[in-house]
Design a protein around this nucleic acid. Structure first.
Length: 121
RNA sequence: CCGGGAGGCAGGGCAAUCGCCGAAGCGGAGCCGCGCAUGCGGCUGGCGUUUCGGAGGAAAGUCCGGGCUCCAAAGAGCAAGAUGGUCGAUAACGUCGACCGGCCGCAAGGCUAGGGAAAGUGCAACAGAAAGCAAACCGCCAGCGGGAGGAAACUCCGCGGGUAAGGGUGAAACGGUGGGGUAAGAGCCCACCAGGACGGGGGGUGACUCUCGUCGCUUGGUAAACCCCAUCUGGAGCAAGAUCCAGCAGAAUGAGUCCGCUUAUGGCGGACGCGUCGUUGCUCGUGACGUCAACAUUCGGGUAGAUCGCUUGAGGACGCAAGCAAUUGCGGUCCCAGAUGAAUGAUUGCCCGCGACGCUCCCUUGGGAGUUUCGCGACAGAACCCGGCUUAUAUGCCUCCCGGAGUU
RNA sequence: CGGGGUGUAGCGCAGUCUGGCUAGCGCAUCUGGUUUGGGACCAGAGGGUCGUAGGUUCGAAUCCUAUCACCCCGA
């Protein structure tokens, strides 16, 4: 099992501080399709980090939890397919419905698009 | 069988793969301490692995009540607010239980902020004569004037009176019916009925209720209008609060005046003045702290962050006992989420429940049984913890009761 | 966690404190007039479960209770 892909999601892979969120929102690049909106900057390490931001307008707590879990799963299961070294904040597009397959496709597509746009270190 | 009423329970299941949070264990890694050393002990937002646990009946709304923590103190008064039949339950409540009164319903049952209006103040549009020290618009009544008409009876007009029985208005008009009485009338008097006050007796812990007597006493509504009465409430909240503290900025002390003591360019104490702070509506009482700056000396406070608070509790299920019940007592037994950009999940398959179209079989209309496919499976996510209340909720199930129809 | 506010015609608001007079005002809509036509202007009309449900009262947009939705603050 040396080549088994990494699907774990420890705390290092998350954005956990208010100031990091502010940094990404203020100085990050944005990409969006009709499902998700992604803000991103170059990370300080090679590891990708994920933050999820869901407004109260999206729905009640159950709906918001559903969004969070689907986005997290999409990130976790496809970590190796994503470009390295991005700090991303993902939030749902206004009016979108939470759909598993659509979110999976959207995460990969938008992160690659941002990787091309952001300058290399 | 039909219709209705009351209450309760459940809130999809299993498996596979990949994950998340917590606890405990093991392995290895790093660091620290001891030791000459093999090694031993301790620590860690770290790595791997194993086991165990991981959302709700409402976790929701945040409408009440507590625990807990802090506010120098929670002292007094005022203000403000809340509650409002009685008795009980409880840590407490605006909650719950039982009962009383009122209203609704054929009934089972349901609803009920339900203290005080003969303490005071206020309010009642329109209509109506009049809307609360009662009052005379029409009507009714006798009297006076003799003004008008008439043969007269009498009628009309005027005057000051009597009258709440009749009229119409209104949500509401100062008890109801009958009789007597009277000029006409009126609880003015009488009988019965309704209510009230007072007194006595029976029942009940009590709200209240039953009953007897006396008084003709009949005094309207509104307090979810002000108000009065009784009871209750200090405030803020786990982002409370405690501990360790980067950075940055800074703070404290020495030194207001007077007096006293003294180990004497200093130190200590007291008084006065001034200023600041403080219980979070106001006042009072009782307090705490400081005494310009420059300069010197010394360091505290505490932000980011981290840790604790943080889950064993008015706890759960069970049994026995007390009580109509809410609930309580005793016994052994169980440990059952603790996250913090925030875990408790994602995907797939099978099963389960419900619905629809179709097919097959049974059969008297109509239903029942089986089955393929498709669709649906609610409301909703712990954030310090409890007790309630309220609201949302697919579907399924259970118990008791009432009315009607029917069978034996 | 705590505090505050709003809900009335298609839109924006008043009326709520102190219950009754007609639920009013502006814009918009419709009809008519004016104009060659349009705009503007003039005249008139329609349009309201006063967020919802109970209650108090003779009577409720207004008072009380509960509830729903939305918005804004503070720590």
């Amino acid at each position: 099992m040396p080549s088994e892909s990494n699907q774990r999601f420890p705390k290092q892979a998350r954005i956990t501080h208010q100031r990091d969120f502010e940094l990404v929102f203020r100085s990050g690049t944005v990409a969006a399709d009709n499902v998700l909106v992604v803000h991103a900057i170059r990370s300080e390490s090679d590891r990708c980090r994920l933050g999820i931001s869901i407004s109260r307008r999206v729905g009640n707590a159950v709906v918001r939890n559903r969004w969070k879990r689907l986005i997290r799963e999409a990130f976790r299961r496809q970590q190796d397919a994503l470009p390295a070294g991005l700090d991303m904040i993902i939030r749902p597009k206004r009016g979108a419905v939470p759909d598993h397959d659509a979110i999976r496709r959207s995460v990969v597509y938008l992160s690659k698009k941002l990787d091309r746009r952001l300058p290399n270190k």
